[in-house]
């Protein structure tokens, strides 16, 4: 589903965010991406979603070669992906319902279907009763959950989560991880970047470790326990 072949990403200031990274994540697979701050996790996610382009190497996502992907096709690639960032960047003047509905509105879903799917997504993250609230009236943890609901509402093939539990307490963080596992079980490819090694250890999935822009391991999370 996601394949990196010798991918390097260098910025104009000369810093190298990713250095000849190669890995493959199969369809319906779940993996963690760990590494220190600045190791290149966010860059790797941005490359998968074509928010940035690689300096060299090949990237394949859901059967598409991103290096050959035209600018016009990028939005349609992103509609296959659910993106969750540490700062979910919610629209301040829109209600929770409108924020979550955004990917469906853009894709042209009917109003009845939008309502059904948004309610289902909000129910999954435990915020169904907050659908009419404005984001400014909610906590940062709730913001993160709205971001997750927005990322999964259109049932993407791939879910990319960059530090999704950074603002959550441990119990809620585990609940959210279980939610990601639920998506993984129904065939969604899930890649989660996190600092929380204890969570990685508890959930036995593959762990991709980035160090100074290089991929140094592809271990199973469970092995970290030992």
């Amino acid at each position: 589903m996601i394949q990196f072949q010798h991918v390097t990403k260098a910025y104009e200031n000369g810093s190298i965010a990713l250095d000849c990274v190669s890995f493959e994540l199969g369809a319906g697979e779940m993996a963690f991406l760990t590494g220190h701050s600045g190791a290149g996790k966010t860059t790797l996610f941005k490359l998968i979603a074509s928010i940035e382009r690689p300096t060299s190497g090949q990237i394949y996502v859901d059967g598409l070669s991103l290096t050959r992907l035209s600018t016009r096709s990028i939005p349609f690639l992103r509609r296959r992906i659910g993106l969750i960032f540490q700062d979910p960047q919610l629209l301040r003047h829109r209600t929770v319902f409108d924020n979550v509905a955004l990917p469906l509105v853009i894709s042209g879903f009917k109003a009845s279907e939008i309502k059904r799917r948004v309610h289902a997504a909000l129910d999954k993250v435990g915020l169904l009763d907050k659908e009419k609230c404005l984001p400014s009236t909610l906590s940062s943890g709730e913001h993160q959950r709205i971001g997750i609901a927005r990322a999964v509402v259109h049932r993407p093939h791939i879910l990319l989560a960059d530090e999704p539990t950074g603002n959550l307490d441990p119990d809620l963080a585990l609940d959210i991880m279980r939610l990601f596992e639920a998506f993984y079980r129904v065939g969604v490819t899930v890649l989660i970047a996190t600092h929380d090694l204890s969570l990685v250890a508890r959930l036995k999935h593959r762990n991709l470790i980035l160090r100074n822009g290089q991929l140094t391991g592809g271990l199973l999370g469970g092995l970290l326990d030992g």
Partner: peptide
């Protein structure tokens, strides 16, 4: 700016 960024993330076209 934030709206534009989010719209880009969730697959809005440039025209949209």
């Amino acid at each position: 700016e934030i709206d534009i960024q989010v719209l880009g993330w969730v697959g809005a076209t440039l025209a949209y």
